[in-house]
Write a protein that binds this DNA or RNA. Structure first.
Length: 344
DNA sequence: GCGATTTGACCGTC
DNA sequence: GACGGTCAAATCGC
């Protein structure tokens, strides 16, 4: 077992190192204006593949450990659960869900993101994170001027996606929203692109029409899924999508969740439409994780990419945990920071 | 009619 | 007991 672990670790280091080298190459190509677009894309694909492999290794490892640990996991179902075996997928799921709910606060991945929205029409669109959210409650919070909205993933009933989020408007600045994400989207792991199509809910509808957004998101997700599934495919262009107009500050409040890490799919989350833009590819964003976790990367416009890549290249960390729960975490926010680095 | 939202009530945690 | 989180019936909108 010990040898096997060493071997896996070496492979992991190799993949991560390779990813870093590729990121460096990409950086060079980005500095050269004459560099063909295809070359950059190719590098992006390679980086993605490299990190995908690394992630798979990590996941496999974690999964093995967690499966054993989960065997003896205590259950604390809530009293209000209905019949355990119902034809209704909703009820069926709820019963399952109640076994996790009581542990949610402590064990689920939770992170907060502050979003400064742009005033004017389509304001709520800035809050969009690309996922389908359904509001299930609203509550006045003690000491808060504005009520807190509770949202869960639309695919919760059908696919058991446990992701939820809370939106709280700031007291001081009404244009500032604090969005707390809990859990991660498992719907994006199981589903075909059409099923996981991100679509802003009514309150967060962006300027783009609902239909267009949905279609575009589906295409993007599909394209990227295809890309990684078949690394030989090189000639597909990277789809583009607008980025939110928000300025965010992200805090990971409770990173390590062994249970959710098991099904964590970082690469899958990279298909997230908002994680894709012409100027900032998912791969280069991944590079930012290789850097110092205490570092706050601040960048804007085209400089953003370079700084993030630099952060990746400047650090020689090969033991970085890449199993991120940041499904909906907006890695493209011009400003993001992590408190309590989740690793090391 | 169906899906999403609202809102009062319930439950668990501290 | 207070508070936050969730449920579920009622309501709304397409």
């Amino acid at each position: 077992m010990e040898n096997s672990a060493d071997w896996e670790q070496k492979n992991l280091i190799n993949e991560l190192t390779q990813g870093m080298e590729l990121a460096k190459q990409l950086q060079i190509h980005l500095n050269v204006t004459t560099s063909p677009h295809e070359t950059r894309e190719l590098l992006v694909h390679k980086i993605l593949n490299s990190y995908d492999k690394a992630l798979s290794m990590l996941k496999l490892n974690v999964e093995t450990q967690q499966t054993a640990a989960a065997m003896g996991m205590a259950e604390s179902p809530r009293s209000r659960s209905g019949s355990p075996h119902s034809e209704d997928s909703d009820k069926d799921f709820k019963d399952h869900e109640h076994k996790h709910v009581s542990k949610k606060g402590k064990s689920m991945v939770r992170w907060t993101k502050q979003v400064q929205v742009c005033p004017g029409p389509g304001l709520e669109g800035c809050l969009d994170d690309g996922y389908n959210w359904r509001k299930y409650g609203q509550k006045d919070i003690l000491g808060a001027k504005y009520p807190r909205g509770y949202y869960r993933c639309t695919h919760r009933n059908v696919r058991g996606c446990l992701a939820t989020k809370q939106i709280q408007k700031s007291d001081e600045d009404p244009t500032l929203y604090e969005i707390t994400y809990r859990g991660r989207h498992t719907c994006t792991l199981i589903t075909a692109p059409s099923a996981a199509a991100p679509l802003p809910n009514k309150q967060e509808e962006p300027n783009m029409s609902k239909q267009n957004y949905q279609q575009q998101s589906r295409e993007i997700q599909f394209n990227f899924q295809t890309e990684l599934d078949s690394s030989s495919t090189r000639d597909q262009s990277i789809p583009s999508l607008y980025l939110p107009c928000s300025v965010s500050n992200v805090k990971v409040e409770n990173y390590v969740d062994s249970a959710s890490m098991v099904d964590n799919n970082f690469v899958g989350n990279l298909y997230h439409p908002l994680l894709v833009s012409p100027s900032t590819s998912a791969a280069t964003q991944m590079g930012s994780f290789v850097g110092d976790w205490n570092q706050t990367v601040k960048a804007s416009g085209s400089e953003q990419l370079m700084e993030i890549v630099s952060a990746a290249s400047a650090t020689n960390s090969s033991t970085v945990g890449l199993d991120f729960p940041f499904g909906a975490l907006d890695l493209f926010d011009p400003t993001f920071s992590f408190e309590n680095p989740p690793f090391f």
